[in-house]
């Protein structure tokens, strides 16, 4: 203790010593106190998720009579019932199809638009940029009514390709915003060298600039993957036929119907199945995910 004071402090030693000394005593109890809070919040976050996973193995009776108890046996059949009769499997498939199209389209259109805006000067550049970025400001619920009719008039209601296009459109603001900033930071020397070597502008983009922008593309790709996977509001308005439901929407619908049927075990199994993929992705890529999601908010 005294060692720390004498090396670290240029202040009158006695004053610092008493203060630090007292601080350390208080800190001992405070550490227990603060650790207590940290553990408490960790429990509050993790327990509900674990509870859902455990309840997925219980019988309806166990769920209702003993919410804190463990399942008496591992009832895997709950999962298969959720997958088939609860249509969770179909919802997974629909979500996968939509994501395949919407992510590809979002990344392609977002990257090309951002590149054009970041690296070329032309009249209306700023205007287009702000038109895109302004879209980030407003809750999507405001556009609901006209969007429903716009999509219906295009004959895309209740269709997965329609949903892909809508997801893409609503992801462009953030994607363009993020990637424009990213393309601006890339060095110009490389592209100039490529142009002098006779590389055309399109080739330059696909062969030189896109590979260079990989870290940015990964961040925004993770962001969009989660956004599209978890999207709930747009499908609720645009998909009415339950054959076409995506996962988030299907789960909410399942919760409503199971509430009437009292089949809680199937609901918990469905809930667990729906949570699993994102939590696995998160466990594997947690560093990139945290960086990707928080980076967007900081600009």
């Amino acid at each position: 203790m005294s060692e720390a004071v004498s090396t670290a402090s240029t202040r009158p030693a006695t004053r610092a010593r008493t203060r630090v000394g007292r601080g350390a005593l208080v800190d001992g109890t405070l550490n227990v106190f603060s650790h207590g809070f940290l553990v408490l919040w960790a429990l509050m976050t993790a327990l509900p998720l674990l509870w859902a996973a455990l309840s997925a193995f219980k019988s309806d009776d166990e769920i209702l009579s003993d919410p804190w108890g463990l399942p008496s046996e591992l009832r895997w059949s709950n999962f298969s019932r959720a997958w088939t009769h609860g249509h969770i499997g179909l919802y997974f498939l629909n979500t996968g199809i939509v994501l395949l199209g919407s992510l590809t389209l979002t990344m392609l259109l977002g990257a090309t638009a951002a590149y054009a805006l970041a690296r070329y000067e032309f009249r209306g550049n700023r205007l287009i940029y702000f038109a895109f970025v302004g879209g980030m400001m407003f809750p999507v619920v405001l556009a609901f009514v006209p969007l429903f009719f716009v999509v219906r008039n295009a004959g895309l209601l209740d269709s997965l390709p329609g949903l892909m296009l809508v997801y893409t459109a609503y992801s462009l603001p953030f994607t363009v915003f993020f990637l424009t900033a990213f393309f601006r930071t890339l060095p110009t020397a490389v592209s100039e060298a490529a142009l002098i070597d006779g590389c055309g502008p399109f080739r330059l983009f696909f062969r030189v600039m896109l590979p260079m922008a990989k870290p940015g593309l990964i961040s925004v790709g993770i962001f969009n993957f989660l956004g599209h996977w978890n999207q709930y509001l747009l499908p609720v308005v645009l998909l009415k036929n339950d054959d076409k439901y995506v996962l988030a929407q299907g789960l909410a619908a399942l919760a409503v119907s199971e509430g009437y049927r009292g089949d809680y075990s199937r609901l918990f199994a469905g809930l667990t199945l729906a949570m699993l993929p994102v939590l696995v992705v998160y466990a594997v890529f947690q560093r990139q995910v945290q960086a990707g999601l928080t980076a967007g908010q900081m600009k």
Binding site: W41, A42, T45, A46, P48, L49, A52, S55, L226, W229, N230, Q231, Y232, L247, A248, Q249, L251, A252, A255, Y264, L267, F268, L271, A274, M275, V278, L279, V281, Y282, Q286, V289, Q290, L293
Partner: peptide
């Protein structure tokens, strides 16, 4: 702490309703 951020609003809603 960050885990709930991964979950869709429908998972959170259904979970907490339970």
């Amino acid at each position: 702490y960050f885990a709930p951020q991964m979950l869709s609003v429908s998972i959170i809603g259904v979970l907490w309703t339970q």
